[in-house]
Design a protein around this nucleic acid. Structure first.
Lengths: 117, 117
DNA sequence: TTCGTAGTTTGACATTCGACGTACTACGAT
DNA sequence: ATCGTAGTACGTCGAATGTCAAACTACGAA
């Protein structure tokens, strides 16, 4: 009944020092990826890919999560068949203090403005 | 000796309410455009396109400035043959308080980190 | 061991992007 | 009226992007 063990299947992440602002902005300039990040931030915990009910196929979902991981926005780790996703808050806050919160705040504001909770 | 008059040549800008966060992030995810915006912010005034010495042709320069204008990041106005560019600070600060400064701060930090004033 | 669930990989496709060159327009200065 | 400067428009090109379908892998449960 315990959670499945963390697997060691390879999942390349950029190191903290390799993360680029341009890459983060590009990753978040896609509405679907921005939504994923907002949800991760709201929950404040790791979520599996399948937790998200995205209006695209599985392969497209895989693609979006990979863009987020390779840009340094999220960290991914296998846990059984599930792949858990978590924001790299520590690294992002260290590299760019205040940026993530400003982005999340802006996204929240826009969501309200455009009339969708 | 006075400045040339502001011309009325058409230059479509999105209204404040039409500006989208995703568009801003996409616009700023290009290194050249991010650099332009940093420079505009540093000067705090309007600058002509030709003030920037970009390593691309004139037509590519036109392209980048148009992306910035159409995403709502800058405002452009003709003044004689020159086209003056200014940040839309008022609109951006109203729509997304703190976002622009966070982005500029992040860009400055990264520039220092990567060792280029 | 067999099955189902979660996610990957590959290849295709249409679109967009960043860059270019050439020909063009708009305006100020001479 | 002519010239030079600033920037545009258009067409092109190669690379990247977002999407899909189909075949596949990895793991837990029965």
């Amino acid at each position: 009944m315990t959670s499945p063990a963390v697997s060691s299947r390879a999942l390349p992440h950029p190191e903290r020092g390799e993360i680029r602002l341009e890459g983060i902005l590009h990753a978040l300039s896609d509405p679907m990826r921005l939504q994923i990040v907002r949800e991760l931030a709201a929950v404040g915990d790791e979520l599996s890919c399948s937790h998200f009910d995205l209006p695209v196929t599985k392969s497209t979902t895989t693609h979006h999560f990979r863009v987020l991981r390779e840009s340094g926005v999220i960290r991914q780790v296998y846990q059984g068949t599930a792949k858990m996703n978590g924001l790299r808050r520590d690294d992002l806050d260290d590299l760019f203090p205040g940026l993530l919160d400003a982005l999340l705040g802006a996204a929240a504001r826009q969501a309200i403005r455009l009339g969708s909770g």
